[in-house]
Structures are given as C-alpha cells and as structure tokens.
Design a protein around this nucleic acid. Sequence first.
RNA 1: CGGGACGUGGCUCAGUCUGGUAGAGCACAGCGUUCGGGACGCUGGGGUCGCAGGUUCAAAUCCUGCCGUCCCGACCA
Length: 506
Amino acid sequence: MSKQEQTAISPTRMENYPEWYQQVIKASEMAELSPVRGCMVIKPWGYGLWENIQRLLDDMFKVTGVKNAYFPLFIPISFLEKEAEHVEGFAKECAVVTHHKLEKGENGRLVPAGRLNEPLIVRPTSETIIGDAFSKWIRSYRDLPMLINQWGNVVRWEMRTRIFLRTSEFLWQEGHTVHATKNEALERTYMMLDIYKRMAEELLAIPVITGEKTEAEKFPGAETTTCIEAMMQDRKALQAGTSHFLGQNFARASNIRFQSADEKEELGWTTSWGASTRLIGGLIMAHGDDNGVILPPRVATAHIVLLPILKKPKESETVMAYTMDLADRLRQFYYHGTPLRVEIDARNIGGTRNWDWIKKGIPLRVEIGPKDIASNSVFMARRDMDRKQSRSITIDRFLEEVGDILDDIQKNLFEKALAFREKNTRNIDDRETFDAFFTPANPEQPEIHGGFAMAHWCGDRKCEEAVKNRLNVTIRCIPFGGEETSGICIECEKPSPKRVVFAKAY
RNA sequence: CGGGACGUGGCUCAGUCUGGUAGAGCACAGCGUUCGGGACGCUGGGGUCGCAGGUUCAAAUCCUGCCGUCCCGACCA
C-alpha cells in the first residue's frame, strides 16, 4: 500500500465533481436512492439536518406572525387550470391520480380500477388549493394579512434527477400570504427573502446573493420572483430559496376578495415563498471536502462525537463511565438555544470509527482515553481543520469553550465559502472574455470552470436566450443593491444600467 | 424525450468477444493477536449475474423487449 495521503472520498472534487457528490452522500449515510424512480430515502443523518433547518426556519417565520396549517396532497385538475401561466409551468411535470382502487387482473397482478370522475394531481405546489381556502376564510380587510405556512412534500415529475438537488418528490415549506395592498405584499416578499438569506448565511454558513429573477426564470404565475443564489464548489449556482410577489393573479384565479375599510370589494394581493430539502444538497456542495461532508454546527445533526479509547477491560469501565459523564455534562450546555447534540461511539473497530465520523462531517470529534482522564483533558479534532491539528485540551477549558469553538467552525465555514465565491466572481465586459470564462478546456470531460460573471444585460429576453443557447449559462438574478453602473449588454451591446449575475446553474 | 456508457454478494469490480450453470478486494460475523488505531491472522455467512422472453444438450456470456443508474442535451427548486 502506498503511504501517500489518501482521501476518504474517491473520486476527489477535482477529478469528478458530480461523482464526488454522490459518493459523499453515500459515505455519510445521509440519503440513498429508492426503488421508486427519481425519489430518495432520507436517512437519519440527513433527516436530522432537515429537522434542524425546519425548526429554526419555522421559528423565524413565526416571529413574523406566520402560522402553520396543512392542505391536501391532492389537487383537482380544475384548480390548476385557473391561472394560465401557472398551468403552463407545471402541467408538464404533474403526477396524476386517475383511479381509486386496485383489482386482481390477469396473472393475479393488481391493476388500477375505479376511474375517478375528475382526476387529481399530486401537488407540485399549493397556490391553487390554498387560494381556494383563502377565498372562504377572507371576508374583510380585518382578516388580513393572512399569513400561512405549510410543511410538506410536493411532486414534480422530473426528467433528470439528482439526490437532494432535484428529485421527483421533495420536502419543503411553502408560505402563502394575502394582503390588502400591493405594498404590503411586496414588503412581505422581501421580508421572507431576507429570512432565507439569514437562514442560508447564519445557519448553513452559505453566502448568498439576493436578487430578482428575469421574466424567463420567474415562477409561473408570479409578478416577480426573488431568490437567494449560492455558489457551489464547482462554481455553479444553486437557487436555495425563493419568494414570490404574485400580484393579484392568484387572487383573481381563486377569487380571494375582501371588503376594504371604505366598504369597497377588492382583490387580495398574495405572496408565496419556499425552501426545500435542496438546501441539504447545497450544504454538501458548499462545504464538503475530499474526506466527506462538513456540517455547520448550527444545523449539524450532532455537534460532537465522543470516542472512548477502549483497550484493557479494566480501564474500559473507567473510560466508559467518564465518557457517559462527559456526555451528560455537554448535553446540559445550550448552544444557540438548543442543548448540544452529543453522540457516543464506543465501537471497538480501530481507526475506521474516526473516519466514519469524518465522512459524516460532525463538527467535533473528541477522544477520551486513560491518559486524558489522568490529565483531566480530552483530545479534540475539528472537522474544518486538518486532522493533524488535533489537540489536547483540559476538560474544564473544553466545557468552557465548546460553544466558542463551534461558533468558530461556523464562522470559518462561512468565510471559506465567501472567499471562494469572491475568488470566482468576475466583472466581465466583453463577449470574448465572457465566452472563454464559461468554456471548459476539455469539453469531453469538462473540468471545473467558470463562476459568477457580473455582466451587463440590456433586459431583452432574446439576449438572455442567446447566451443560454450558446453556453448553457443563465441569468441567475438581477442582484439587489450593487451600484448602478452603465455599460453595454454582453450579447447585443445595447446600453444597460446594471450588471446581472450570469452562471451555469443546478 | 434524444445521444453515449453501464447494470455480476452491502460496496468497487473481474469473468461476456471465443456459451460448459460464479470469483477477487473491501465490508459483515466469530475467535485470537494488536491498537490513542483507516491493524493482522484464521474461520465463516452472503449472489438463481437488473427483469421478461427466445436460441441451445447447456446462457452472467448469444438474440429481442422492458426497467433502472450515470454522463451530455431539452425542462426545472
């Protein structure tokens, strides 16, 4: 065997990024493919992340007055038909329920029977069915704003699937609100986008750009779609959350009307906003390295694993007792409002045990052996640092500093990701440079290339499409903020007031 | 849905061209020796070779169809 440093994940990110992504998920036991085409099984280590994201996001929503509710999985086709653009956008990828029972057919196989009068679709999103409820719930301006969120699953029949990033069924949250005025609805749209930005940056440690989608990229039926866009380590963009201003389109379609203070009947103004299990894919691709996942402490399924060094039976008893006691003490520590999540792995399987946790990306590994106990210390390794930087630390200091250490990991991950994005974001002003930026040296086996190109765009859909056809590069968003600098469109050279974010995307 | 590759124990793959009814490494279980360590030895369990037909005395191997996975396009969170 060669003695050179071997990575736990093969291939490495540089060698083959898509394959690395799949191997990381397998090695970390976060999820796996299911027997159902395009659907995944989320395993405990992955689902734990989702639970944390869910809880923290939910808290942020509730602070702004949002309440949770639940609406049906099935939607009558006639509901989807109500909003023209909406149908256009989703009809192509709907799972349709046409029967309500099974009967024994030939060969004893079960066959669908009992055809439904009106087929149902499995929700690809719930604007229409929630709109229908809202139309009944809302009578007067006193009922507004209506602020509802639903945690659930949706189905979109995808051509090509990728675990966590694009599966036929995925878990998400969809918020739906109704307001008396346009401004209030717009305000809510931006408020929720800001929550997503905070969630991504503060909890997932993923820096994001906020902005507005172009006409071509916006949600079917929306007036405007806003989004957070993150850069993955292959320099592609990932849309990690969206918030839509729906104008009065869905209010009209679902007949959401209210009586205003001056006794007039008016149409409501609605918004919707969502974030999904795709976030987990983003987390993996933003922070993972060639040894596996690296979990940001704020959402990590577990924060710390205790690894007792068990040798001789006599010592083992002491070491185990000590380990259990340390676990208890750690669990009494509150990290950002929740008790530390501590695992104990007492398997006596040699170094494999350590590597299992490295691949899973747990922020802190703590070894406890007889020598540590004798010196009142533990041996601690941080997942965000080199393995050789493990160090001995006294128990007292560890207990005192554990929160700071986790915060430091969190901060370190964010800063690394931010530096990476900045390194791979460029202002580009001419087409030659632009095309070169997005063209791999070896098209047969494309190496990691490109990034975010901040370039001028005239606003014409045709130019956007031309770029997409030529390079498979799209406008990820028209970023908020940023200075208004006039320039010329990267495609047609007509004047443009502002740079937009061009990138290849997931 | 188009173009390409692939489908053999849990994982990675050999065997397929030139049919003779399954192999390796890793993982798993037991025992022992090691061990602040991705250890080693011995022993053992586990596969009707994606599915369904067909050709043949005989099919993982040849033929047809289907299903699934991955990559590249079209579509999308």
